[in-house]
């Protein structure tokens, strides 16, 4: 391995790292928003919307992100909707992640007993107050492990962004290998940057998980 080569590659990786992280987190934010709304619809079995929600979840959970991205990036422009690559990546990730988040949060909502709802209602809370102050916070702390796993999974899924020519980490590595054949250096940096991106999430995740678990379950 040539340290000189490594050094010369680092700025390129840095740029790709920032792009990957920004697009990734934007996608995760979208996923979280979609997940909460979808979980809410499924938990309360809102007529019509609940059917649409479950079709959405099954559709996006059971197709690869790559296929979804191809659809958004290559097929939508054919019907006049063209979205820039970065936004495509974030939207694709958001839609895929939303279906996973929805299931995770819904199981949390389902796990909060009806007695909790009744206790809140008996205190004179409206349904909205009951949901905001009692059911949702409890459900969220039950769902934390699933949400953390999803976040890590989604950040890794960003590696398929390269397929729609987004200059992410994966794209940069493939590009450099194609240009200079310094395969080892390019791949080592790829691994290092993914770890820099994911390790803090993983560590932070387990702290949050422990805290949430301790609060609700005491173990």
């Amino acid at each position: 391995m040539d340290p000189e080569v490594l050094r010369s590659y680092v700025p390129l990786y840095k740029e790709a790292f920032i792009l990957t992280l920004e697009t990734g987190w934007l996608g995760i934010a979208i996923a979280f928003a979609i997940g909460i709304v979808t979980a809410f619809i499924m938990h309360f079995r809102i007529p019509v919307l609940a059917k649409i929600a479950s079709v959405y979840v099954e559709l996006f959970r059971n197709t690869p992100l790559l296929v979804q991205l191809f659809f958004i990036y290559f097929a939508l422009p054919k019907i006049g909707i063209s979205i820039p690559a970065r936004e495509c990546g974030a939207i694709g990730l958001g839609l895929l992640g939303g279906s996973y988040m929805a299931e995770g949060i819904r199981s949390g909502l389902d796990a909060v007993g009806t007695l909790q709802e009744e206790s809140a209602l008996a205190l004179g809370m409206s349904k909205r107050q009951m949901f905001m102050y009692v059911i949702f916070p409890e459900a969220l702390s039950i769902s934390v492990p699933g949400i953390v796993a999803n976040v890590i999974f989604l950040l890794k899924e960003t590696s398929v962004f390269s397929a729609i020519s987004l200059m992410d980490l994966m794209f940069t590595a493939k590009d450099l290998i194609g240009l200079y054949y310094d395969t080892t250096e390019a791949l080592v940096l790829l691994v290092v940057f993914y770890i820099i991106m994911l390790l803090p999430v993983s560590l932070l995740g387990s702290i949050v998980e422990k805290k949430a678990r301790y609060r609700t379950l005491g173990v």
Binding site: Q116, S119, A122, E138, R215
Partner: peptide, 18 residues
Amino acid sequence: RIREKIGMVFQSYDLFPH
């Protein structure tokens, strides 16, 4: 609003765990 005037305590003391 009416329920505010009626306090209820249940068998299984459902305090809010969080």
